[in-house]
């Protein structure tokens, strides 16, 4: 519940403060957000399966975002930034889908 409140509060804060993304963060933020989404859905799934652990969630959230951003950074340095970000987005997208499928099965039994 606190997580949900936090999410809503974050969105409201973003709408109110109208932040601009700093330039150095611009290539990495989209990927980091997708990675964080993956962590969030993973957490939701674990919660529904009754194996949720805050520590695991926090660690996976942080490591997901940081690793995703690092991969993009490395890709930019190697000159394959756009391809690598596509790859990361595909992998994270697949994980999000499988997590959401598990959540759906848990919730609706379908």
């Amino acid at each position: 519940m606190i997580a949900l409140i936090g999410l809503v509060a974050g969105v409201l804060l973003g709408l109110l403060l109208q932040p601009t993304v700093p330039l150095w963060l611009q290539p990495y933020l989209p990927i980091a957000i997708v990675a964080a989404l993956d962590a969030m859905f993973g957490g939701l799934r674990a919660r529904l399966e009754g194996i949720f652990d805050e520590k695991v969630f926090v660690v996976s959230f942080l490591s997901n975002t940081i690793i995703a951003a690092l991969i993009v950074f490395l890709g930019d340095q190697l000159g394959v930034g756009s391809q690598l970000s596509t790859g990361v987005v595909v992998v994270l997208g697949i994980r999000i889908f499988s997590n959401v499928a598990a959540i759906r099965r848990k919730l609706f039994k379908a």
Partner: peptide
């Protein structure tokens, strides 16, 4: 709502995610 420290950290991370997502969309 169960307010212990770990939950608050989770909530904070979600807040960060929401904020970042809105900023990025904008």
């Amino acid at each position: 709502p169960r307010a212990n420290r770990a939950q608050l950290v989770v909530g904070l991370l979600c807040l960060l995610l929401g904020f970042a997502a809105v900023a990025q969309v904008k």
